[in-house]
């Protein structure tokens, strides 16, 4: 039973990780590419980490929850990196498929 749950979690995680990178490689402009790693990859690695937490909790006595820490960290940092990358790309006027909004980030003070 636990084996099936673990297998499902690991497979889902690996598939989402793969799809995230596929998006990174396949999509056509920077702003659309940003979506794959931010969401799919984060959830994929989150699934793998939860699988790891379940695995070690079952195998050894006592719960093993420190994987949750990495998961939380990734879920907090992924949107921050994505926001900064988008800001940097807008600032550098990276080529986009659609009209980009004006860069309001004034030059360095």
């Amino acid at each position: 039973m636990i084996d099936i749950l673990l297998s499902v979690l690991i497979l889902t995680g690996a598939i989402f990780t793969f799809i995230g990178s596929l998006g990174l490689a396949r999509l056509r402009d920077f702003y659309t590419r940003l979506h794959g790693p931010t969401k799919a990859t984060t959830l994929g690695v989150g699934c793998l980490l939860i699988a790891s937490a379940v695995y070690f909790s079952v195998r050894e006595e006592g719960v093993s929850l420190h994987e949750v820490l990495v998961t939380l960290f990734l879920f907090i940092t992924a949107p921050v990196s994505a926001h900064l990358l988008a800001k940097a790309a807008l600032h550098l006027k990276v080529r986009s498929l659609v009209a980009t909004p004006p860069d309001n980030d004034a030059p360095a003070e």
């Binding site: 931010t38 984060t42 988008a86 807008l90 909004p101």
Partner: peptide, 18 residues
């Protein structure tokens, strides 16, 4: 809010006006 938007369906927050 910006972080929530980035993690939820199909949207990434890109910039905050000055």
């Amino acid at each position: 809010l910006a972080n929530t938007i980035s993690l939820t369906p199909g949207t990434v927050s890109a910039n905050l006006s000055a």
